[in-house]
Design a binder for these strands. Sequence first.
DNA 1: CTAATTCTTAAGAACTTCTTAACAATTAAC
DNA 2: GTTAATTGTTAAGAAGTTCTTAAGAATTAG
Lengths: 228, 228
Amino acid sequence: MNILVCDDDKEILDAIKIYLENEGYKVFRASNGLAALEVVEENEIHLVIMDIMMPQMDGLRATMKIREDKNIPVIMLSAKSEDTDKIMGLNMGADDYITKPFNPLELIARVRSQLRRYMTLGSMETKSNVYKTGGLVIDDECKVVTVDGDEVKLTPVQYKILKLLTANAGRVFSIDEIYEKVWKEVAFSPENTVAVHIRKIREGIEINPKEPKYLKVVWGIGYKVEKI
Amino acid sequence: MNILVCDDDKEILDAIKIYLENEGYKVFRASNGLAALEVVEENEIHLVIMDIMMPQMDGLRATMKIREDKNIPVIMLSAKSEDTDKIMGLNMGADDYITKPFNPLELIARVRSQLRRYMTLGSMETKSNVYKTGGLVIDDECKVVTVDGDEVKLTPVQYKILKLLTANAGRVFSIDEIYEKVWKEVAFSPENTVAVHIRKIREGIEINPKEPKYLKVVWGIGYKVEKI
DNA sequence: CTAATTCTTAAGAACTTCTTAACAATTAAC
DNA sequence: GTTAATTGTTAAGAAGTTCTTAAGAATTAG
């Protein structure tokens, strides 16, 4: 499996190369978007890891260019300071993204996950990012949530929380875990933020928020979306 | 969970040790990078907290060395004066970093977060987190207990006790042992707390709590869950 | 058989976690 | 720059859990 890593910081490039090679991947390097396009053109690349901020051609444009004629999974890299929402919005064609400083284990896991997905898809198919449990359906491509066919309007944060829980229906997430996954930073003071969003989500998706059918509390542990 | 703390300042070392031990972690210490490598080599370390500026071998090199053959999360420590951006860039392999002076709560939160990430990434496709004995099944991911297929509602403490006993079905645990493992602190005065919880658990999982099928007493020694 | 020990059980006080609403701060849209 | 929408904070009350106490039952040892 050949992976192209594209970043203008040589140290990061080297670090990622080491991690990936440890896992048995062959690693190609490029230090800007233009160089990346060349490498993709001339080699059989199976996955690209791409920084956003780079000289000459940034990662977003490069990703779009690559996507014009190849169907290769792309994982975006970005500093935490850059607004992740914006990245997600802009992120035309990226399959996943990771914020710096990143956890090498997470990088490996996401690489594996993307490769696995593309293998089974046999390429070219459109991926169906739809999560379902009972009458609750989340279409992640359209960013639309429906309950028994009726569309529910959720705000971005609400949407992310519900998607996390629904994509992993049955699994319980602690409040800290939810906070980390959605806000991408560590929570260390007891705040009520997540609880309030949970309440708002229930208002949207539950017929009777006091007796939730989908979004349930697991006392003393956290919240989960029931697997139905 | 074993944590290695590596810093040349003995006061910081001691302080961190105390915080971590309060949370139930076992703490190893090292005062420079070389010593750290030895400790990692000779013990099963699950996470490393590493200062950057140290004599003999600095934290960055030590982190890279550790990462060459082990997949252990590393949290970097650094004085605020050192440019954090540079650290982020350099941060070859560190999973997270904290600046001195640090907030103990933040330290704990980040440690927990890394261990959690590491666990879920590591177990992504390997262990299943399900414990079974006879008709008793504990799904630790969903925090759900079932007996012959029927869900049983348990409180967090009850759940933790039952999980401890079921994960080690057949083994007998003394009341003090159960107390220490679940509450993560030592028990001195003979209290009745555990016994009361045992009773409640039996009420939940046993058809007839007076003649328990799973959660049995071993007279004069403690309790166990029968291995079936 | 009796006493000592250990285990079981119940009830309620003390405590923690969750829900909810109202308001403040921030961000996006016009 | 004003307005609207979203997000975050606070605080009070509701709901649920844990711990303590105490009394009774079962088991062991002398």
